[in-house]
């Protein structure tokens, strides 16, 4: 493919790539650009924007106006960002802890079993996230199946009332993002030559050491890719915190939604989105500097 493009005249080359470039411009750069512009405009009272340059939205992110109109530092929004990062971070760690052994188990199965199990892992993709989250409401609500089960077995003696807590939120987040961790780890483990593990045993390594020194380092690109695939969308999660967290403990996604919805402050919503985008971009750049060019796309 690359060879083909190298030998093709410039005009033809341009013609060939233009649909792809057009699609990217139309569906990615244009909306993002629009949001960027919005974030530097003034809010209109009932939603929408007034076309006047303003830094108000970015100022509002960190400061609030005191009674005498001087700016004082306001950490409320930063706190929501911090909460989101902590929740997303814990979700990512839990996904690694559950996802890595799962992927390791999957690759050790016979091809037939593996295909069936991989199908099971991807089944959640076949149904709507909203429906699945409502199912969790039924499970987690007071006197729900989880409470009932725990009491029946005798682990707890009173309803836990998990629904609308951070725990419920975490359970929902881990549940919905776990496949995004399992799949990239699975694909990097699938490429791993298990004779290397045998070689490690042969040289005196036990199972734990072989895992630590051989399997995990070689699966690292998959683990890192999985972490990005979980962490980044988890930061902007909306449905799960809204439904399982009860919308009380806000995450970034809910905050942004509020600005475009109830608060009718579009420029601030746009600015919040851009703050998130900037943080994520910086993290991704740091990651690819660490693991080398192409680490993100090639899953090496």
């Amino acid at each position: 493919m690359i060879e083909y493009f190298r030998r093709t005249p410039a005009a033809r080359r341009t013609a060939l790539v233009s649909p792809a470039v057009g699609a990217i411009l139309l569906f990615m750069v244009l909306p993002l650009g629009l949001m960027l512009i919005y974030s530097f405009l003034q809010r209109a009272t009932y939603g929408g924007v007034i076309w006047t340059l303003s830094f108000q939205s970015y100022i509002q992110f960190l400061f609030e106006h005191d009674l005498d109109d001087s700016l004082i530092f306001n950490s409320a929004y930063l706190q929501i960002y911090a909460r989101s990062f902590i929740l997303a971070g814990i979700t990512t760690v839990l996904c690694v802890i559950i996802g890595f052994p799962t992927a390791l188990y999957l690759v050790q199965q016979s091809e037939r079993r593996r295909n069936i199990l991989m199908f099971l892992v991807t089944i959640p993709f076949w149904t709507n996230l909203l429906v699945r989250t409502y199912a969790w409401i039924l499970l987690l609500r007071r006197e729900g199946l989880v409470d009932y089960g725990l009491q029946a077995v005798g682990i707890t003696d009173a309803p836990l009332g998990l629904l609308y807590t951070d725990v419920a939120n975490l359970i929902g987040l881990v549940y919905s993002f776990l496949p995004f961790m399992v799949l990239p780890i699975y694909s990097s483990l699938e490429k791993l030559d298990f004779r290397l593990v045998e070689a490690a045993y042969d040289l005196g390594a036990n199972r734990i050491t072989a895992l630590r020194r051989i399997v995990i380092p070689l699966a690292m690109p998959g683990i890192a890719a999985g972490c990005i695939l979980v962490l980044v969308p988890c930061l902007g999660a909306y449905v799960t915190p809204e439904l399982l967290g009860g919308g009380k403990a806000l995450m970034i996604g809910n905050l942004i939604q509020q600005q475009f919805g109830a608060s009718q402050n579009w420029p601030f919503g746009a600015a919040l989105s851009f703050a998130l985008l900037a943080i994520v971009l910086i993290a991704l750049i740091a990651y690819s500097l660490r693991f080398g060019r192409g680490a993100l796309t090639e899953g090496r």
């Binding site: 030559d193 290397l196 045998e198 070689a199 045993y201 042969d202 005196g204 036990n206 051989i214 070689l218």
Partner: peptide, 19 residues
Amino acid sequence: PPFRRPINTVFQSYALFPH
């Protein structure tokens, strides 16, 4: 188990640790 045997192997594919 293999790691308790004073026996070492040169594998056909060499099986060197690539990292």
